[in-house]
Amino acid sequence: MKAAILIATLMSPLAVAGQCNMNTGFTQANYKVTTGTITNKQHTESIFTLWRTPHQVAKQNPQFIELWQELRNQQIRPIRYFQEAQRGIEYQPSEVQGKQDWSSKYQLVSDKLLASMTHQKSTGEGCELVEYYTKQQGESKIELSWLANQKLLKSIRISSPRYSREIVLTASNHNQQKVKAQFAEWDNYQTTDYADIGDNENDPFLAKMINQGFVEHGASGFYDAQGNQLQGSHKHHH
């Protein structure tokens, strides 16, 4: 019932506290990720930037960018760009319908996860309307703040007695020109079809791929309906 109410809330323009007149279809959002282990009091920090156009989303890490394109048939097509080499690897769209959730990539958290959480309160209005949600899942607790009218994650914290992970929005803008320019820059990188890598051992960049494999997925910052971290564009299932 809560989920149904939340979906209705997300869908209904009357329910949101005022409108946001910014062009939220184009977004640059900077995030800081802090991961901590409670037992030995260690923590690590990293940053990434989320870039969005209406049908593309990219997660820019310091070394590489993972970009997803939403196709007309709702398939999701991944591309991985390598900033320093200015090269890209193009992948086929996910071909198993329903296997991937566009919202989990576009918003960092899926609509399903949001719908499964308990709304605690709302503050602000218009573009700055922030909704606060929580969810307890076994020993883990998820606390999330959501810029509802920008469809943008403000923060998420997942904590357990031994481990915590927090992603916090540090800056954002909706500068359409800048966002378009960034996607255009990546689009101009030389790309190679994933299937052709094996035939290009003479290309130093691709030879490195052949000999050392692909960059392993780090913490992606993407979460599914259970609050589980997603490990990339294809879920490795056993």
Binding site: E95, Y194, G232
Partner: peptide
Amino acid sequence: DLGDETDADAGYN
């Protein structure tokens, strides 16, 4: 082990 995935190239991920 990608189960019923018929796209061989999914493994590159």
